[in-house]
């Protein structure tokens, strides 16, 4: 493995599968009474979250603790960042504490990539702007594999705010590398300018969802919308909301995923989110195992 997990873009199929296999061993650990292993004892991890997060931050923290690392949570509002300290200086300070890992989320794309050139420890991207969210894509792939057995050849529909979604970007890269067929379903305003050739796009959800094995609903990211991308939330739900009627048009064994946090009644109806086809809570559980695998594998690089 490389030193840093910057994105799915930098991984090949073999590396992705290695992470998923390792994660299944860690999932076994999480099902025991004692859910902790001494594998990374004595290592220090700094969680640097410049953007709000519930799931990813707590999931990383739990994964770190279950591997016996020492965890430092860096909270931006109470730190010197508000006094104007530069990102690089902040990170260099963390480095002087002997941090072996820096898990970073930042509102700007490319921040982890730049930091990785200055940091000796492993940099793990926990979401950078609208670029990538690699651990989310890995845990999604893990969940699909767990539920469906094989990813190759599956029809996977990604619905909603694709243009602002680093989850969609990472998932697209990951699932294409693993041989899935991907479709995008979204209004034209929420589709990215450059879409890989292999991907079919649909403006109509009822057409696009047909025979899908996996349906990924995405959060409408209001915080990244600086202009009107669609007229109203009510209209959006009417045209693109995932409802039980629409779900019926997909494969009868289809699974429904959402990276969270959900806007119920905008991109997904409560009936679907809480249905037995929904694997949204499995995604959360699997997230810990996958992040443990990432920390374990990327910590073992040759020059670290």
């Amino acid at each position: 493995m490389k030193k840093d997990l910057l994105g799915i873009k930098q991984l090949n199929e073999e590396e992705i599968l290695n992470i998923l296999t390792t994660a299944s061993s860690f999932k076994d650990v999480l099902q025991r009474d004692i859910k902790k292993v001494p594998a990374l004892r004595g290592k220090t991890v700094v969680n640097l979250f410049f953007e709000p997060s519930t799931r990813t931050r707590t999931s990383f923290e739990l994964a770190e603790k279950r591997l016996s690392t020492d965890v430092l949570n860096f909270s931006i509002p109470t730190s010197s960042v508000v006094k104007g300290e530069s990102l690089l200086d902040t990170v260099k300070t963390m480095q002087s504490y002997g941090a072996d890992y820096i898990v970073i989320r930042h509102q700007c794309s490319g921040v982890p990539h730049r930091l990785s050139r200055f940091v000796k420890g492993s940099v793990i991207n926990a979401g950078d702007g609208i670029n990538e969210h690699p651990t989310q894509a890995l845990l999604d792939a893990f969940t699909i594999k767990e539920k469906k057995g094989e990813i190759k050849g599956l029809n996977i529909a990604i619905i909603g705010d694709i243009v602002h979604s680093r989850v969609a970007r990472s998932n697209t890269l990951c699932l294409l590398k693993l041989g899935a067929n991907i479709r995008y379903i979204a209004p034209a305003t929420l589709l990215p300018n450059y879409i890989p050739q292999e991907i079919k796009t649909f403006y109509n959800i009822d057409e696009g969802i047909k025979d899908a094995d996996v349906i990924m609903a995405l959060r409408v990211q209001k915080e990244r919308m600086d202009k009107a991308f669609f007229p109203s939330e009510r209209e959006y739900f009417k045209l693109y909301g995932l409802t039980p009627d629409r779900l019926q048009k997909a494969d009868s064994q289809a699974i429904v995923m959402h990276p969270g946090p959900m806007n119920r009644g905008i991109e997904i109806s409560s009936d679907v989110a809480d249905s037995n086809q929904s694997v949204i809570l499995d995604q959360v559980t699997n997230g810990i195992a996958v992040r443990m695998a990432v920390l374990y594998l990327f910590g073992g690089n040759d020059n670290g």
């Binding site: 594998a39 594998l297 690089n301 670290g304």
Partner: peptide
Amino acid sequence: LDITLYRDDINIKKPHPIVRRTE
């Protein structure tokens, strides 16, 4: 039983050894 995660040389071995199944 897979003992990889309990080894005392895990941080000396680079890359980290493969984790196999404990069943």
